[in-house]
Amino acid sequence: MALPLKRLEEQTLVITGATSGIGLATTRLAAERGARLVVVARDESALEALVEELDQRGAAAVAVAADVGDPKQVRDIAQTAIHQFGGFDTWINNAGVSLFGYLTDQPLEDQRRLFDTDFWGVVHGSLEAARHLAVRAEPHGGAIINLGSVVSDRAIPLQGMYSAAKHAVKGFTDALRMELEELGAPISLTLVKPGSIATPFPHHAGNHLAVEPTLPPPLYEPSVVAEAILHCAEHPRRDMRVGGASKGIAMLGQLAPRLADRIMRRSMIPRQQSNQPPHGIGGLHRPAPGVWQRAEFEHPVARRSRYTQAAMHPALTASAIAGAVLGIAALTGTARRKRH
């Protein structure tokens, strides 16, 4: 049952993974636009620093230290939102971590830990949010926004288990959306699928490579994803890609899967390995420290995505097509240069 969503300044948002990367960029932008915030992460000291920052910005915010892999702790997030603000309007399942290396080199314990956060964390958050939002007696609907990835559609080597988790997130999100629609629940359910984003993501990942992992270009600022997420909090969308490469890679995988295999193998394996020794920060089995939105990379980082701007504003469809084509061209060009 489609209902209009509130304006952002009238909303309370729950944001998991709020102290780092995309979650932090989304939190800061939502605070700037007047939303009330329930910020969630595992590290209490990082949350304290974030809430202090939000207080200085004049934002209404409460922090919850929680591991989204534990359904009881996720229920506590919802109860905090209800106690502090009377409920919530949008729940953003952003918490996630990756695992770099060949699948045959990764302990099962690491692979299961990744799924606890990246898949089960989304399941726990989505179901908790759905139970709350389904019984709202307001003239406005609520929103659940799940963070997928370009690898929700096309797996990449060296992040195989992360790809598997994001595939699972897509399947779960698509199934839950159909069920909520059948039940007439006043909920918009969106899957956001970013490409490579210049966050601390590789530094916080589990790592079984001999070097520090990195991300392949093209790279985008975290604020590009934050804008897309908050757009979906106000405008019901089925899914939203961030970056033309995300669409381009998905299209290539659908139209020419074996060609995509070869291109991904030749381009993605070297481009996910830096020339630096492992830093050992990690964030798989323990909270990553600090409040850290943006990391430095050797490649240029785009401040906007023509494709995503077009996706948010359909009148710009021609730009969206051009962005997807450029994404494929960048990927195939990388593979061609490597062969030569």
Rank of each mutant, 00 (worst) to 15 (best):
Q159F: 02
A168H: 03
Y220S: 13
P107S: 10
R337N: 15
Q79P: 00
D89C: 02
K247M: 14
D67W: 03
A49P: 00
L176S: 06
T308A: 06
Q11S: 13
H83Q: 13
P194I: 12
A330P: 00
I145Q: 01
H279A: 09
A81F: 07
I82Q: 15
L103D: 15
Q254G: 05
V135S: 11
A310F: 00
G96R: 08
L24A: 09
E221Y: 09
D261R: 12
A46F: 06
P194L: 15
S274K: 06
L331E: 11
L37C: 04
T26S: 14
E234L: 01
L3K: 12
P194V: 13
Q111T: 01
G283L: 06
G160E: 06
L54E: 00
H340L: 11
L209G: 02
V225W: 09
I92K: 14
T199G: 06
G142M: 05
M312T: 01
Q11T: 05
K193F: 09
G69E: 03
A335D: 13
E10K: 11
Q254T: 03
H83G: 03
I281K: 08
Q254C: 02
L13F: 04
V242N: 10
I82T: 14
M251T: 13
N207D: 13
V301P: 09
R112G: 00
D76S: 12
Q106T: 07
T80A: 15
P287A: 10
A335I: 03
P236M: 03
W292H: 11
S20K: 14
D116N: 12
A31W: 09
M178D: 14
E296G: 01
P270W: 12
R339L: 12
R241I: 00
L230N: 10
Q56E: 12
T27C: 10
I144N: 02
V74N: 11
P217Q: 05
A233W: 00
R306W: 14
K247W: 15
A130Y: 00
R131S: 10
L99C: 05
A18H: 07
L259N: 03
T190E: 01
S223E: 14
E128K: 08
A165M: 01
A95T: 04
A130I: 00
Q272I: 01
G121D: 07
E234R: 05
L114E: 06
E227G: 12
A78H: 07
M268L: 15
D76M: 07
N275H: 14
P277K: 10
R303A: 13
I15M: 13
C232I: 07
H235A: 03
R337P: 03
K170F: 02
T332H: 08
G87M: 12
E52T: 10
D153L: 08
A228P: 08
E53M: 14
R113T: 08
L215Q: 12
T173G: 09
G148M: 08
V51L: 13
G101D: 13
T12L: 04
S149H: 04
A198H: 06
G141L: 02
L8H: 07
T190G: 00
F172K: 04
D118P: 02
G21Q: 12
I15Q: 08
L183T: 01
Q106K: 10
G171H: 08
L158M: 14
G96H: 07
A31S: 13
A30I: 04
R265K: 15
A81Y: 03
D105F: 11
A61E: 05
A66I: 12
L24K: 07
A318Q: 10
G244A: 08
P236G: 03
R304G: 06
D174K: 11
A60F: 04
S305W: 09
R33W: 07
E48C: 08
P314F: 02
